[in-house]
Amino acid sequence: MENAALLNAIIANAIDGIITIDNRGCIESINPSGCKLFQYTPEEVIGKNVSMLMPPPDKEQHDEYLARYQRTGQAHIIGIGREVKGLRKDGSIFPFRLGVSEVAYSGRNIYTGFIHDLSREKEAEEQLKEYAAQLEEQVAERTQSLQRLVQALELAKEEVSESLEKEKELGILKSRFVSMASHEFRTPLSAVQLSASLIEKYALSYGNPNISKHVGKIKNAVGNLTAILNDFLSLEKLEAGKVEPAFSSFDLVKLAEEITEEMQLLAKQNQNIIYQHTGTQHMVRLDQNLLKNCVVNLIGNAIKYSGENTFIEFNTEISEQGCQVTIKDNGIGIPETDQKHLFEAFFRAHNTGNIPGTGLGLNIVARYADLMHGQVSFKSEVNQGTLFTISLPIL
């Protein structure tokens, strides 16, 4: 009795479905897992032919097996591990692995079916096949795209080889391309900037803060793209040796005040640029455009890398030793390990995060200062801010 109770408990708690049928195919018992798989109660299936749980053509084949047994007295025993389909009460069909064993009991034969649901495995297989097919399709597309690209590159290489005989001429072509690309990009960017400004103006009457917010994002994105184009064009000109300083006399204080006014418009909320000049002399003889580019770049960095509600100190000084321009912020600072690489092209400090930039600005500033026979130095601490100094001789 104890063994029988243990056996019943094992069958009742089995993960797989277990069904017993007699030699006529009628169901004698079904465990809870089998009921759950087929969505029937024991009362609905016990005494019924097991073919009620089979979809076509398995149902017809089972009837043929029974007919053969009735004619010949020999049962058709299904091998272990066969994959078949099951028919649920709601009409849905699912795959399962069927194992059948024959047991002689009390002078008669009983057939026990062990049913292991394969729905998840089949779904996983189908997903894997689908992913594999998608991957093969993507690989084929990428391969074709790569082949087209290689062909285009080979064709371009041949065309360039035919038209350019020297490396110098190739450099000229690159220079023309950068200039053309910069020009072609600037035109639509200017149009986008103008349209954004007009949208902002027309939207004032609606009083919708979301419009101003998104227009501001457009303006910032256009400004970032324009700055990137300017950096690349400046670098290309420097590399090509096209930048020659044009020294002239001008009022340094007037230039600095103009720059302060322009950059204040780009500052963050409650971010103030404080300008101060030391000395009674205002006139210098330098390249005004190169100096302005240097100062705008450094103040732009101070704005980017400092938070709201901060001050940016912008100072100029003219003395017998020369001209000095300093820009000081209270921003994120530059890690000590990065400082030795700061003026390298395309280098950005590791703490800049998602703040946009090309890593070209300081390289350009240093090279512009060098063209004016000056130099750039800095002092910085992380989270304490940075002080940049441009030292230039008075010619």
Rank of each mutant, 00 (worst) to 15 (best):
N3W: 14
L7P: 01
A12M: 10
A14P: 02
I15G: 11
I15F: 13
D16F: 05
I19E: 00
I21K: 11
R24N: 13
G25S: 07
C26Y: 15
I27M: 04
C35G: 00
C35F: 06
T41H: 06
V45C: 00
N49Q: 09
M52A: 08
P55G: 08
E60G: 06
H62P: 03
Y65K: 11
L66A: 01
A67K: 10
I80R: 14
E83H: 08
R88T: 00
K89S: 02
S92H: 12
S92F: 09
R97Y: 07
L98I: 06
L98M: 08
V100I: 08
S101K: 02
A104R: 10
S106Y: 15
N109W: 04
T112P: 06
F114P: 05
D117V: 01
R120S: 15
E125Q: 11
Q127G: 05
L128S: 15
K129A: 15
E130M: 14
Y131M: 15
A133R: 10
E137S: 14
E141S: 14
Q144G: 10
V150T: 09
Q151A: 12
E159V: 13
S163E: 10
L164V: 11
E169R: 05
F177Q: 05
F177G: 05
V178S: 00
S179C: 11
A181D: 09
S182P: 07
E184C: 12
T187R: 13
T187P: 04
P188W: 03
A191W: 11
A191F: 13
V192Q: 07
I199S: 03
N210T: 14
S212V: 09
H214D: 04
H214A: 01
K217G: 08
G223K: 01
N224W: 10
I228N: 15
N230R: 10
L233A: 10
S234A: 13
S234E: 07
E236I: 02
E236Y: 05
L238E: 03
A240R: 08
E244N: 14
P245H: 03
A246F: 14
L252D: 01
A256W: 08
E257V: 07
T260Q: 08
E261K: 13
E262T: 02
Q264S: 01
L266A: 10
N272W: 13
I274L: 09
Q276Y: 12
Q276P: 04
G279N: 03
L286T: 03
L286I: 00
L291R: 08
L291W: 03
V296R: 07
A302M: 00
A302E: 01
Y305I: 08
Y305S: 03
G307L: 01
N315P: 02
E317V: 05
S319V: 04
E320H: 13
D329T: 07
N330W: 02
E336T: 12
Q339F: 06
E344T: 11
A349M: 04
T352R: 05
T358L: 07
A366S: 09
R367H: 04
R367C: 00
M372I: 09
V376F: 06
K379N: 12
T389N: 05
L395M: 08
